[in-house]
């Protein structure tokens, strides 16, 4: 029974899914050199039967598999919104970007391991995640969290499990932040697709882009970095493209001595363009398959 004493407007009102804040005036970029080529990627969903949603993504030599379990009921205390968690794991013998710096594997140990064609020494039998895995997990969690309508799923959990089956070892040397950011970028895109496949309600599909800026040359989806140079900056940024290009995740790494706002703008423009291209590809995948 509707309320007849108040003016409530029509029943089937749809509130547009955008907020009113204006986009910053786009600074007309000079004809800065820019390399736009995006690598082709292979995408498939629904490959894991007992998960609610799953995706499989191949780009270059990176192979990423994501499965989404949820909403699953929890026992015990009541929560009014679903709790969301992400766990990202590399397969045991996959080399992790920058692992010698963060995962306490010394050079001598890993070079000894390299000779026997094993890159990671003591990981077989480990129970916890390495520092890099923890960091990637929390980036994905922070970026996807704003997009999921957690209020729809009280008393439940949504768990995302990412498995990195293969990494692009061709990208730079062992010390390359760009390699790490590029991997994070594709992990995020794969996770978004898996989330859509699971049918969990989202406000928008989060997609992300990665860009590398060196000597004022912006490269989208960098695959090979020229010799490491002072002043190179890499950035991965994730967006909700239909919600006013809101940034849900950002991570900038570099070796420069100062960071200009113009550089950040330039990088974010690049990441945004790439995220839109990825989004278009994902859209066409879902509409045609």
């Amino acid at each position: 029974m509707s309320d007849r004493r108040r003016l409530l407007g029509s029943v089937n009102t749809i509130i547009p899914n955008v907020d009113g804040t204006a986009q910053p005036a786009k600074i007309e970029s000079k004809t800065e050199p820019r390399i736009d080529g995006l690598r082709p990627f292979f995408l498939k969903t629904g490959i894991i039967e007992n998960a609610n949603g799953s995706s499989y993504l191949e780009v270059g030599n990176n192979i990423i598999e994501v499965s989404v379990y949820g909403p699953r009921p929890i026992r015990g205390s009541f929560i009014d919104r679903a709790s969301f968690s992400v766990e990202c794991k590399f397969l045991p013998f996959i080399s992790q970007p920058n692992e010698h710096l963060y995962n306490n594997t010394s050079i001598s140990a890993s070079s000894a391991a390299n000779t026997t064609n094993q890159t990671n020494v003591n990981v077989n039998g480990r129970t916890g995640l390495t520092s890099i895995e923890h960091k990637i997990s929390s980036y994905i969690e922070t970026s996807l969290l704003p997009s999921i309508v957690l209020e729809k799923y009280p008393k439940s959990t949504i768990d995302v499990f990412v498995t990195i089956i293969s990494t692009d070892s061709s990208l730079g040397g062992s010390y390359s932040d760009t390699k790490m950011l590029s991997l994070v970028n594709w992990v995020l895109n794969a996770s978004s697709v898996a989330l859509v496949d699971s049918g969990i309600e989202v406000k928008d599909v989060v997609t992300s882009g990665v860009a590398h800026l060196q000597n004022d040359v912006l490269v989208l989806d960098p695959t090979e970095i020229q010799e490491k140079d002072e002043g190179s900056v890499s950035c991965v940024a994730s967006f909700m493209n239909l919600r006013n290009d809101e940034i849900v995740g950002i991570w900038i790494e570099g070796d420069q001595t100062n960071l200009e706002n113009s550089q950040v703008d330039h990088l974010l423009d690049g990441c945004n363009d790439m995220s839109k291209k990825v989004r278009a590809n994902i859209n066409s995948y879902f509409t045609t398959s």
């Binding site: 922070t142 950002i250 991570w251 900038i252 570099g254 420069q256």
Partner: peptide, 8 residues
């Protein structure tokens, strides 16, 4: 100067 890393 503000430098990298920067993240949310």
């Amino acid at each position: 100067n503000v430098i990298t890393p920067i993240s949310n």
